[in-house]
Design a protein around this nucleic acid. Structure first.
Length: 965
RNA sequence: GCGGGAGUCGCCCAGCAUGGUCAAAGGCGUAAGACUGAGGCUCUUAUCCCUUAGGGGUUCGUGGGUUCAAAUCCCACCUCCCGCACCA
């Protein structure tokens, strides 16, 4: 059993969770004497337990909150729960109907008992169950949340808050009404989304142009995606076997398939079916093309399906592979021609030219695809290829009237506009991935919802302000900023209410419920209010817009609010002051999937409602989590519940493993190898603490102590710089790996001198490490901190600051010299395979140092021209000796250019550095690392030196010469 | 198509903003050694190629360019991933 397994992480965790709770350490009150910092993270939707993937965003936010707290800010980090929306409702229905997929998930993955599941027929029970499950997980993860401010989005006061928000937006003219299409279940009378369908398919539909061909006053509508090809229509297709109907549609008489008539009803047409007509009876008639007025014949075609479009298809053989193929097959089908007395089969009319197609494009596309019949699936491919090719590269030909010469992409829009406006065409929506079945088994359709309410994100002035806000905001990481700018420009009207689901009723039209991405955009403000709801000071009775106007905007007076609500004036003032203190949001964390929606809406709505002083300051976006390199999914069975992972590995381990595997925007790969490694590291820190607490093995501090303490300051500096940019992965590397590496070097040096290291130095290191680690591994840090006998907790010890006094360039240079000498020795041993018994090291002659310094000064000043530098050297008596060995100068330049910038600067600053002393101090290590060889150190100019192979003359500054035997 | 991102030494993944110990961190894997009754634990060392003196050669998607110096800057190209809506 290894040490890491011997530590009882869960007990330590429970102990600190209780302590934090009892001492109320994360309950944040306004405090005018301290700077506030308000961190929020997108609240969870409680329809499942949290898994590892969810943990990343919250852990990042928590580490951020803890870091800022240690930096001395009065940090507020609250949490709420998003009950609003439709998926929970859908789940509840599925429970009621005994959906075996869902029940299976509950039993096998979530391990729920039947008693619990049976309560789930009530949607709120699902939400509240997972709510408490998630909350426990958050506590177990050690999140530093002020739980007094917790709320759900169906709380009565929250509803009032949302009503206020919406009335506000409406007053500002940002909410508009219109109609829009949705996937729809005719039986449930509800919109359907992915969660509501069998097989979890998202209903996907496109907009067709419904072209009204006619014969007399009867309309024969044909649905098309390519209205611009109307000029090339040669005929129509009808399936002779299909049932068509004659129906009154709105005020016209239409002939179309029975299926299509039904679909039109959902698209808000008034449809009344009069008579049934067999397809074969339509074949042979002639219909007028509304755009060109030309009459085209109706031909029979088996490929026409009654439930696709209208059951009538306009045929453009020159540009549609299906049409071309069907036409060619008909041309040689004597039986069909005889049956429907078709004499001359029409010929394709080409109306679009595009690079790469010289003849009839459809024919060429078919040939290229290799398709050979109407039923060949490759025809589909050919269709898509040709369609997109012509859309992007095609031009309308001379036979298209005023559209001649325009691009296909614009002709498509213009033709459509022309015929729709003149009443010769209508719009039809059609599912492209049908059949889509609702979970109730009914086949879904597209429904046009009328009088839908939209948030008008397309509003120009609004957009301009949002850009202004976004430009001022700190977006972390910067890489994602462009994406925000793009989304801001691209957003237009967005439906903000729906007919079902949990949520707040639209205040002026209670048939509608406010949609869940619209009621979750300014709720961060609500955390300053919810505290008073939870404490019993505030309830929904008596409060109205007056209250929110005053608290959130400072409009009106406390007196008026008090009079209306019955709250004491002082309470009203206090709530107002609390909001004023904590707002604006200093940092908002979320996953990158929310960039194109929530995070951008968050900016939009803040800009609309609040003054610029309360606009959010920062957005932090993180990538998702992979499990052992793979996407997490039910089918792979690799979804690990967060609480299970905590129980098995410890919260701190999970926290670190989550943050260390990738930089913030990258996908983080969670792997158990990493977990194991992290756990061992943490156990190592426990061991170090035990060692520091022990009394054996102390020894006097040496030069390596100065070095380690100097390095410690560097690590503090670097870690702080990383944290300020929220580069947490990098920060953890410094804290866990760099620091440990330095400690190891230190111990190696000490051990070689026969000491075990100085306990004061090691303790100092450990203390700093624990403080740096506290935001990431709060349990471990607190526990060890306490075991070290510290009175206060590690959080209140503050974030360490680098101590400039402890930075020791001399010590840094010494160790640097020693370690590069070790590397040189190693490579000599490796190449020569000498087993060294005696090693002589020669430091360079003083004049070389002068030359080095002079060259270094030139290089640091940006001069790298050898001739010029040589001239300067020769002009100075101190360095004139360089003349005897120009090659050496060349070599020094190379040395300098290939040394790190901080080493160059350090050497420039170091007034006197004795390589001999440094090497003497480390001779024990040099020997220990080299077969316990005898180490002798000379100056190059020492007349008494031992130098059998004349190596000493190769000595250079910071690069002593070596002889070994 | 539009928009965004990525391509690094067996694999994963840093580095690129601010060009210079970058043959390129860390982890995994692999090899040897230590520990152990034995290890799947842990620790140490090695891990592009060549080299009997600290050296040299060739690498960071491909091809050019800028520079004393390029994984890093510029141009072109190839390949892959993600988003494109009313859904949390």
């Amino acid at each position: 059993m290894s040490d890491s397994e011997r530590i009882d992480w869960n007990t330590i965790e429970q102990k600190w969770i209780k302590r934090w709770h009892d001492a109320r350490v994360f309950e944040t009150e306004p405090d005018e004497s301290k700077k506030k910092y308000f961190v929020t993270v997108a609240y969870p939707y409680p329809n499942s337990p949290q898994h590892i993937g969810h943990g990343r965003t919250y852990t990042l936010a928590d580490a951020h909150a803890r870091y800022m707290r240690m930096k001395g800010f009065n940090v507020l980090f609250p949490m709420g729960f998003h009950y609003t929306g439709t998926p929970i409702l859908g789940m509840s229905r599925r429970v009621a109907s005994g959906d075996s997929d869902l029940l299976d998930t509950f039993h096998k993955i979530y391990k729920l008992s039947d008693d619990v599941i049976s309560t789930f027929v009530e949607p709120v029970k699902i939400a509240s169950y997972f709510h408490s499950e998630i909350k426990m997980g958050m506590k177990e993860m050690g999140y530093s949340i002020d739980w007094r401010r917790e709320f759900t989005t169906i709380d009565p006061v929250y509803s009032k808050f949302i009503s206020w928000q919406f009335r506000m937006l409406k007053k500002k003219g940002l909410i508009v009404q219109g109609s829009h299409p949705v996937g729809w279940c005719p039986r449930d009378q509800n919109p359907v989304s992915q969660h509501d369908t069998m097989g979890d398919v998202e209903p996907d539909f496109t907009e067709y142009t419904l072209v009204k061909f006619h014969s007399g006053d009867k309309v024969y509508p044909a649905a098309t995606l390519r209205p611009e090809t109307l000029f090339g229509v040669t005929n129509m297709w009808v399936n002779p076997e299909t049932e068509y109907v004659e129906a009154s549609v709105d005020s016209e008489t239409w002939v179309l398939s029975r299926d299509a008539a039904r679909k039109l009803e959902f698209l808000n047409h008034k449809v009344e079916i009069k008579t049934s007509v067999k397809g074969s009876n339509i074949v042979g008639s002639k219909l007028a093309n509304p755009l060109t007025g030309l009459l085209v014949p109706v031909y029979p075609a088996a490929f026409v399906k009654s439930d696709s479009g209208t059951g009538l298809v306009m045929s453009v053989p020159a540009h549609a592979p299906y049409d071309y193929q069907a036409l060619e097959e008909l041309r040689v089908d004597e039986r069909a021609k005889a049956e429907y007395s078709i004499r001359d089969v029409a010929s394709p009319i080409k109306i679009i030219e595009s690079e790469g197609y010289s003849g009839i494009p459809a024919a060429e596309a078919i040939a290229k695809s290799g398709a050979s019949s109407q039923n060949d699936p490759r025809l589909e491919e050919a269709t898509n290829d040709l369609y997109s090719h012509e859309f992007y590269k095609g031009k309308m030909m001379g036979n298209t009237g005023k559209y001649s010469g325009t691009t296909v992409s614009s002709a498509k829009i213009e033709v459509r506009q022309e015929i729709v406006q003149s009443g010769q065409a209508a719009t039809m929506y059609e599912l492209v991935n049908k059949p889509v079945k609702c979970r109730c088994g009914t086949e879904c359709v597209v429904k046009l919802l009328s009088d839908q309410w939209f948030l008008n994100y397309g509003d120009k002035d609004w957009k301009a302000q949002v850009h202004e806000c976004a430009n001022k905001m700190d977006i972390v990481p910067q890489d994602i900023r462009q994406e925000f700018d793009y989304v801001i420009d691209w957003l237009r009207e967005r439906a903000c209410a729906r007919k079902t689901g949990l949520g707040t009723k639209l205040p002026w039209d209670p048939e509608w419920i406010i949609e869940s991405l619209s009621d979750s955009v300014i709720y961060m403000a609500y955390y300053t209010i919810s505290k008073y709801v939870n404490s019993g000071v505030l309830s929904d009775s008596g409060i109205s817009d007056l209250f929110f106007d005053y608290i959130l905007l400072g409009i009106g007076s406390a007196d008026a609010v008090s009079k209306e609500s019955g709250l004491p004036v002082s309470a009203v003032e206090q709530i107002r002051a609390e909001f004023a203190y904590f707002y604006p949001v200093d940092s908002r964390h979320s996953g990158r999937d929310l960039v194109p929606n929530h995070l951008t809406f968050f900016i939009f709505n803040h800009v609309a409602i609040f003054g610029a002083a309360n606009w959010p300051r920062q957005i932090v976006v993180n990538g998702s989590v992979l499990m052992e390199g793979k996407k997490m999914s039910k089918s792979l069975g690799n979804i690990i519940p967060l609480r299970t992972a905590i129980r098995e590995n410890g919260a701190d381990t999970i926290r670190l493993a989550m943050l260390v595997s990738a930089e913030i925007l990258q996908d983080a790969d969670f792997s158990f190898d990493t977990v194991r490694g992290i756990r061992a590291k943490l156990a190592g820190i426990f061991e170090m603490a035990a060692r520091c607490a022990g009394n054996g093995g102390d020894s006097a501090p040496g030069s390596e102590d100065k070095w380690l303490l100097s390095r410690l300051q560097r690590i503090i500096e670097e870690t702080t710089a990383s944290m300020d940019r929220l580069r947490m992965r990098e920060a953890i590397h410094y804290i866990l790996y760099s620091l440990e590496q330095d400690q190891q070097w230190y111990l190696k040096r000490a051990n070689a001198k026969g000491s075990q290291g100085n306990l004061a130095t090691l303790s100092k290191c450990l203390e700093v490490q624990l403080r740096l680690l506290a935001p990431f591994a709060p349990f471990t840090s607190e526990e060890i901190w306490e075991r070290m006998g510290k009175k206060d907790d590690v959080t209140s010890s503050g974030w360490p600051a680098a101590d400039n006094e402890a930075i020791d360039l001399h010590a840094e240079e010494s160790e640097f010299l020693v370690s590069s000498l070790l590397t040189d020795l190693q490579s000599i041993v490796k190449v020569t395979k000498i087993v060294p018994k005696k090693i002589a090291v020669y430091t360079c002659a003083p004049w070389k140092k002068f030359v080095y310094k002079a060259v270094l000064a030139q290089v640091l000043g940006g001069k790298t021209n050898f001739g010029e530098i040589m001239k300067i050297l020769l002009a100075d008596p101190q360095t004139v000796r360089a003349k005897t060995d120009p090659k050496l100068v060349q070599k020094m330049m190379e040395d300098i250019l290939s040394s790190p910038l901080d080493a160059r600067n350090r050497r420039m600053k170091l007034p006197e550095f004795s390589e001999g002393e440094a090497l003497m101090d480390a001779s024990s290590l040099l020997s220990a690392e080299n077969n316990k060889a005898e180490i002798v150190i000379y100056s190059e100019e020492d007349p008494e030196k031992f130098d059998p192979k004349q190596k000493s003359k190769f000595a250079k500054p910071f690069k002593p010469a070596i002889y070994m035997e």
